[in-house]
Amino acid sequence: MQVYKLMMSMGGVVMASLMAGCSSTPYLDSRFGEAVDMALAQQTINQQASQSTDPVSGIDGKAAREAMGRYHDSFKTPPSTANILTIDVLGGGGK
Rank of each mutant, 00 (worst) to 15 (best):
Q2V: 02
Y4R: 13
Y4C: 10
Y4Q: 13
L6M: 14
L6P: 05
L6Q: 14
M8V: 04
S9M: 10
S9D: 10
S9V: 08
G11W: 00
V13E: 11
V14K: 00
M15L: 08
M15N: 01
A16H: 05
S17E: 11
L18Q: 04
A20D: 02
C22G: 11
C22L: 10
C22M: 09
S23W: 10
S23F: 11
S23I: 15
S23H: 07
S24H: 08
S24C: 07
T25I: 11
L28R: 12
S30C: 05
F32K: 09
F32Y: 07
G33M: 07
E34K: 11
E34C: 04
A35V: 13
A35G: 11
V36N: 05
V36E: 10
V36Y: 04
D37Y: 07
D37F: 06
D37C: 06
D37T: 04
A39E: 04
L40E: 06
A41V: 05
Q43P: 03
Q43E: 12
T44S: 02
I45L: 13
N46Q: 05
Q47E: 11
Q48W: 01
S50Y: 15
Q51H: 01
Q51S: 01
S52K: 07
D54Q: 10
P55A: 08
V56W: 01
S57I: 11
G58D: 07
I59P: 01
I59F: 00
I59S: 01
G61W: 05
A63R: 11
A63M: 07
A64L: 15
E66G: 00
A67V: 03
M68P: 00
R70I: 06
Y71H: 14
H72L: 14
D73F: 06
S74I: 08
K76V: 10
T77L: 10
T77N: 09
P79D: 05
P79A: 08
P79K: 06
S80C: 09
S80P: 09
T81Q: 07
T81Y: 07
A82Q: 07
A82R: 09
A82I: 04
A82C: 01
A82S: 04
N83M: 07
L85R: 13
D88M: 08
V89K: 09
V89P: 03
G91Q: 03
G92Q: 13
G92Y: 09
G94M: 13
